[in-house]
Simulated assay, not measured.
Amino acid sequence: MASLETHFLATLFFAPIGIRRFLCSSSLFLKNPSLFKSKPWYFSNPKWKNLDLYILAVALPLASFAEIFIFSSLSGHSTYRFSFFQQFSTLSLFWLLIVFFVIYDYLDHSLFNDTFFFVYAAIAFLVEYSFIGVGVTGLGTAVYELLAQLTLLCAGCCLVLSVKRTAFFAEFFLSFGLVFKGTWLLQAGLCLYTDAFVPRGCKKLELLPRSPDADVHCELEEDGMRGVALVNLLFALHAILITVSGFGIFGVLSSIKKLKCAEATGPLLAQVESDGLLMQPVHELEME
């Protein structure tokens, strides 16, 4: 989390995944709510349509190499050694999860089942949660505390889904949390690493020479309180916008029911239709 660029890249990682999860899970849920089961990743057929998955598998190692490059230029500072370690370890955990999805067809599903993936994702989020905001002072503390709460929400939803994959509310809040994390990371980058979005009465301070890291400090306590209130207001506006958009999209999908993901058009849908055909004669017999 060293600059506006890294925040923006993190936004490109979390927000599209959250949007994709919400669209696919909602489509699957609307087909037949009683047969809904959450998936660690909603694959598309044919395989080339999973282009976003393959892009992530390549992009995350590139992001790690970028962290190594930044670290090598600042290796004389112990502060950046720890910062590099926390970012590299978090990226590595999520990258390994993406790799699991890429080679999913070749894995032993008795061991690497859906429960395993949800538990692993929860652990990755908890590791990220333990590192968020470490060493940050000033206004950045309030910004990253809110980000940590979103990360904890994602971890909790993954744990719920590992136990009960039919819990659509957990799937909804997981998608909500991922999108929210993405938009809030971008907001954090704008608030902490650009002069244009620094609250009035506060200023951005460079932590060390040649460093992209900065923090926002307010000279007066009143300015600091105003800055924290502004951060909380922005957080609430993000939450309202994403919630309203989520329910709006869900309402549109429930009316058109035309969005098709692989998990909603493949074997599961066939099973739903088969169950419907089997139940129809029984219903007609009861009517007679």
Rank of each mutant, 00 (worst) to 15 (best):
F168Q: 01
V99S: 01
S44V: 06
R20A: 00
C261K: 02
T243R: 01
V143Y: 05
G182L: 01
H77Y: 15
I256S: 13
T243G: 05
F36W: 12
L4Y: 15
F65T: 13
F197T: 10
L241T: 11
G177S: 04
I55T: 15
P209N: 13
S130G: 09
W184Q: 04
F112T: 05
L178K: 00
L269H: 03
G276A: 05
Y42W: 10
T90E: 13
C24Q: 02
V99N: 02
L107I: 06
D213G: 08
L233H: 05
E145Y: 09
E128N: 08
Y120V: 09
E206N: 15
Y144F: 14
A155T: 00
V136F: 06
K39F: 09
I249E: 01
L161F: 05
M279R: 13
F250I: 14
Q86W: 07
F125N: 02
R20W: 03
V216F: 02
V163I: 10
E5V: 10
V282T: 11
Y104S: 06
S64Q: 15
P267A: 14
Q86K: 14
C157A: 14
S73P: 00
E145S: 11
S73I: 03
G138D: 09
A236D: 05
V127Y: 07
L220T: 13
F94E: 11
E206F: 04
C191D: 11
L277Q: 06
D275M: 05
F71H: 14
L174D: 01
I55H: 13
K39G: 09
G201V: 09
D195K: 14
L174V: 01
V127P: 03
V136N: 08
L208S: 12
P61L: 06
T115P: 00
G248M: 08
S38Q: 09
K181A: 02
E273N: 05
F250E: 06
S73R: 10
A196T: 15
V228Q: 11
F197H: 14
E145I: 12
L30T: 08
L174W: 01
S73L: 12
P281Q: 03
W184S: 05
F13M: 02
F125M: 01
L111P: 02
L207D: 07
A59V: 12
